[in-house]
Structure formats: structure tokens, C-alpha cells
């Protein structure tokens, strides 16, 4: 009897497990989005389709303020993280080997390894002192904190793109009278752009979604979308929460889809 090649799909139970995972992952989201269109006030009690809760959300000052904070925070943190990650990736792949190259790689990726709550507690202790000393209670702390854990997410696609890039292209540019800066601008950067875009979007979503760090480090009166939602959950449970969650989900999905399209198109 000829032996059949190993095929993971033929293992008993794999299909069941996969379907189970999908159900657990997506059914609650479908229910959540469905409920956001519920005309009734009481959760779980269906009274017909309506955009009522979306309208309510868009007139909710607290929600709008939180959304604004979140978008600003995510944009700035992702921007700084992407710039830092791009430089780190260039330094670890393009410069001649130097001492401590491995260390840079490790430091950049460290936030992926350290439990977020540990980092949050550590920052909380330090930043409490700083806040007291300086009196500054603005968004800066959150931007700094979000930037740290966004860097590895921005770094991964950028570095992958750089490693896949043919080094002889930069050599060719130098051969053709291009200065280092001209080479970077005309050759390296355009080829790296899809990776940078993907890195930025990944970082943006990760920041937008963060609860632990934001909840620990926000100053009084500051709310991001996730911390606002947490607070609302405890206070008044209306279908408006579903509408807001659906909006958040929509933004994330759009951005992930955009980043996927960006990396696919030019790759």
C-alpha cells in the first residue's frame, strides 16, 4: 500500500476544531453588531431595526471626546513608532555589522515579551512622580507609553521588507552616481513604502485598541475609546455601547484591510 503524504486536514477533529474557533470568534461579533441596530432600549430585547443608537452616540459629547483622544493618540504614537522602527530596521540591516546589533533587535522587540501589565505598573509608578514634579497632565504620557509598545509592531513588517530587498539595488544606485541620500530617497524608501505603511497601520490599530496601559496612565478626566467603553459598561448598559463598539470594530477592520492591500499590491 502506498503511503499517503501527511495532510493536516485529514487529522480527525481538525475541521471541527477550526469551525469551533471561527464560531467562537465571529458569532459574538455578529451578535454585537446586530444589536447595535436594535431600536429598543433594553439589551437582549429586540424591537426592530434602527440607527437610533448611532445617532445617539454621535451626539454624545463624552464619546466624541474619547474618540478624538484615541484617534489623536493612535496617530501620534503610530507615527513616532513607525519613524523609530524604520530607523532601527535600517540600522540593523543596512549598516555594516556593529557591536550591539543583536541587542537593538532585542530591545526593540522587548515590549512583545514583557507582560503589558508589568510595564504599565512600572510606568505608573514613575509617571506619577513626574506628573507631580512637572504638573503636566496632558496626552504626552499616553503617547510615550503607546509608542513603546507600538514600535515592535511597526518594526516587524518594515524589517521583513528590508530583508527581502535586493542589496545590489543600492549598490547599483551608488554605481550610477547617486549619493547616499539620493539612493535612500529614490530607491530604498519607495521600495520600503509598503512595509512602512503596513507598520504604521498595525501600530495604529494596536494603540487604538489598548486598554491596560491607557487605563493605568491616563490623567483624571482623560478617556480613550476603550477606557470610556469600560466605564460605560459599569454604569449604564444601553445598546449605545454596541453602536460604539461596532464603530471601533469598523475602523480596525478598515485599517487592517488597508494595510493588507498596501503590502500585497507592491510586493
Amino acid at each position: 500500500m502506498a503511503e499517503r503524504a501527511f495532510n493536516i486536514r485529514r487529522l480527525p477533529g481538525v475541521a471541527t476544531l477550526a469551525i469551533g474557533c471561527f464560531v467562537i470568534l465571529y458569532i459574538p461579533m455578529v451578535i454585537l453588531v446586530g444589536n447595535s441596530f436594535n431600536a429598543g432600549k433594553v439589551i437582549g430585547h429586540w424591537e426592530g431595526v434602527s440607527l437610533h443608537w448611532y445617532v445617539a452616540a454621535l451626539h454624545n459629547e463624552a464619546f466624541l471626546a474619547a474618540a478624538q483622544t484615541s484617534l489623536l493618540l493612535a496617530t501620534l504614537a503610530a507615527l513616532i513608532a513607525t519613524i523609530t522602527a524604520t530607523m532601527a530596521a535600517l540600522a540593523t540591516t543596512r549598516a555594516a555589522d556593529f557591536r550591539g546589533q543583536g541587542a537593538i533587535h532585542l530591545i526593540v522587540n522587548q515590549p512583545l515579551m514583557v507582560p503589558e501589565i508589568v510595564l504599565a505598573i512600572a510606568l505608573l509608578i514613575i509617571l506619577a512622580q513626574v506628573k507631580q514634579a512637572t504638573g503636566y497632565t496632558g496626552l504626552g504620557y499616553l503617547i510615550a507609553a503607546h509608542t513603546t509598545f507600538c514600535i515592535p509592531f511597526a518594526y516587524m513588517p518594515i524589517r521583513a521588507r528590508l530583508e527581502g530587498m535586493d542589496l545590489s539595488l543600492e549598490t547599483a544606485a551608488a554605481d550610477l552616481y547617486a549619493s547616499r541620500f539620493y539612493t535612500f530617497r529614490r530607491v530604498t524608501l519607495p521600495l520600503l513604502a509598503p512595509g512602512i505603511l503596513a507598520g504604521f497601520m498595525l501600530a495604529f490599530v494596536v494603540s487604538l485598541d489598548d486598554v491596560v496601559m491607557s487605563d493605568f496612565l491616563k490623567s483624571p478626566g482623560q478617556e480613550t475609546l476603550p477606557t470610556y467603553l469600560m466605564g460605560e459598561l459599569r454604569r449604564n448598559l444601553t445598546s449605545e455601547i454596541y453602536a460604539i463598539s461596532s464603530l471601533l470594530l469598523l475602523i480596525s477592520v478598515l485599517i487592517v484591510a488597508g494595510s493588507w492591500a498596501a503590502t500585497r499590491k507592491k510586493a
Binding site: D166, S168, L169, T171, A172, A173, A174, D175, L176, Y177, A178, S179, R186, V187, P190, L191, K266
Partner: peptide
């Protein structure tokens, strides 16, 4: 290299793909 009046045709061609 960018100051030498010498140009190379690379084994892999190394054309700029974009």
C-alpha cells in the same frame, strides 16, 4: 563608487523594479 567614471552591468542586472 558614485564619484568614479566607471559603470557596472550587474550579473543579476539589478534594475530598479519600481
Amino acid at each position: 563608487p558614485n564619484q568614479r567614471p566607471v559603470n557596472t552591468v550587474f550579473q543579476s542586472y539589478a534594475l530598479f523594479p519600481h
